[in-house]
Design a protein around this nucleic acid. Sequence first.
DNA 1: TTGTAAGCGTTATCAC
DNA 2: GTGATAACGCTTACAA
Lengths: 363, 363
Amino acid sequence: MPPTKQQPAVPLAEQKAIILREGRRVTSYDVALVAGVSQSAVSRCFKPGASFSKATYARVMKAAESLEYIPNAAARSLITRRTNVIAIVVSHSSLLYDPAALSELSQQLNRRGKRALLFTMQHEGEIESILTDVWQFQVDGVIAASRLSEAHVAEFKRRKVPLVVFNRHLRDIEVNTVLCDQYEASRALVTRLAAAGHRQFALIGGPEQNSVAIERLRGALDRIEELGLPPAPVFHGRFDYNSGVAGLHELIARIGAVPDAVICGNDPMAMGCVDAARQHLHIDVPSQMSVVGCDAVEGSNWLSYELTTLRQPLHRMAVATADLICKLIEAEGFMEPEKRVFAAQFVEGETARLTAPRATLAA
Amino acid sequence: MPPTKQQPAVPLAEQKAIILREGRRVTSYDVALVAGVSQSAVSRCFKPGASFSKATYARVMKAAESLEYIPNAAARSLITRRTNVIAIVVSHSSLLYDPAALSELSQQLNRRGKRALLFTMQHEGEIESILTDVWQFQVDGVIAASRLSEAHVAEFKRRKVPLVVFNRHLRDIEVNTVLCDQYEASRALVTRLAAAGHRQFALIGGPEQNSVAIERLRGALDRIEELGLPPAPVFHGRFDYNSGVAGLHELIARIGAVPDAVICGNDPMAMGCVDAARQHLHIDVPSQMSVVGCDAVEGSNWLSYELTTLRQPLHRMAVATADLICKLIEAEGFMEPEKRVFAAQFVEGETARLTAPRATLAA
DNA sequence: TTGTAAGCGTTATCAC
DNA sequence: GTGATAACGCTTACAA
């Protein structure tokens, strides 16, 4: 066996004492001293795919473990220009009303070795200060589930920070997007309900600025007009249960009669609408009035509701989003904006009448 | 006016061209060149409380803005040893079943100038790899809403990373904690229900390893025994709606009769229990059987349920958690572990009978 | 108040 | 395969 050439190793206990005394963190330099190798050798051992001998690796790992050494991500990212952090920008309400989306996104990023830096905003105005922080943290990319102006999108481009817009419709802006085709889903829904004999529609939409809410409304209104049905009144809610309750009362007052079908911008509003109908107004759902929600959230399929709704393929959308952001990071700017559109899946449920009523035929 | 002494400023356009050509990021050095000052002057202008003249500040800010300069957080944290990032470790299920907690925490951190790095875990086993990442990212502190072993807590201490455990009961471990007194709340609940004449209790608990679930069960079981009531059977669910449905069926089979009251470990399970009673078994709630949940989640107060439940003061808990973690960061280790305990608030709702039944007196 | 210069803890380059 | 050495972009004494 040839003699192993190596630097004199510093005793572990001694090095530990020094670190403790100076109140320092453990660095790769400390590991190098204990392992009897150079600092760069330590660095290489922590880099997958780098070249080092088995013996060096063993010595380094032993020293690293006994010192509980962990590489410093800040120092690494300073030179690699990669942080392995993806910012997720999400509004307070989407977090509350659809927590599964955030959870899925986080999981998918983790699986790809990325971590999620969470930015929640209560008001649209906070976006400015959030973006400032996003730039500061040098995140590798951003997933935004929030409204973004054209100027904001342009700044992402200038700064070369990959951006994927999740489930928002940014019309006429060239930007990477993963979304569910709300417009088409709404149209198909109206078609189906109309085929079952519904004529007078009423709509409980989401906030007027919300792009998802807008698309859902547009789809329904366009299709209603195309089919020559009576115009549908619109109530703008805030995506919460109470908006559904209030919405139904107001819509009935406006029409002066019970509508055949109420299409709601999301599930909590639809559940509010169902409850208001059944418990306040003693309207039977679905025989007297149909109610449809959107999102198939936790709770929509419970026995008390069994809501008719539209399920977004959240898992697949999260996978697509994570894939896309990773691809963008790899491509380093040399990629055309990509839009990945998913179709919503109809959940029949029990709150909408989906076949023509016999009674009507008899009458 | 005295002549302003300053270094020759480099033209903005020229500097921009250089940056673009070299594909670099904009650094404080670029700003310094354009502003005609030293790099350290630029740094100082971005540090609140540092000393600089008004004139210098103005020149620096003008240059910074025109170059769209933003300080690099990685470089800064390398030297300041502060990242302004707090890790939030949360299990998939708590994110899903109580998204408001995460949202509140994130908001409160933001308000204190901190950002949240989100770690979600689907299985308890993932905690190891998560902690490795936590150390790498040099976060200023960690808020954990998950199970942590004594060894894990010890590692936080060794690495001097502030830790606050959110709403978990780590028995016999010295660790900063913000929680709701589940044990006491459960005891009080049993007391109140017993006073209303309930004798046969049944329990639908959460996962056997979950500390919150354990405390809730313990409190109920202890109090039931103290009051000399018949022993209550326990079903262990997974915190989801279906567990509540399945739980009620099984508990009734075990007792051989309908219990007087079912205490559930959280709201979705309670709602499952209510639905199973009303719709599968045609048991009237609350006249024939009382059902109580826990958490007062979104949906528990909707008309179809109006659940009797225990509300945790989430907002105040989030504020306390954010305050505590910030205090710990400031104290740099010189602080005794602190436990902040909040009391749950009883929500009367409509699924539990809270007064003695007249019928019983007559019989 | 301001500029000079020495770090912070890595990775990357390049001889050997 | 390995060890010097130069970045990375900032903060912070210290001297002027």
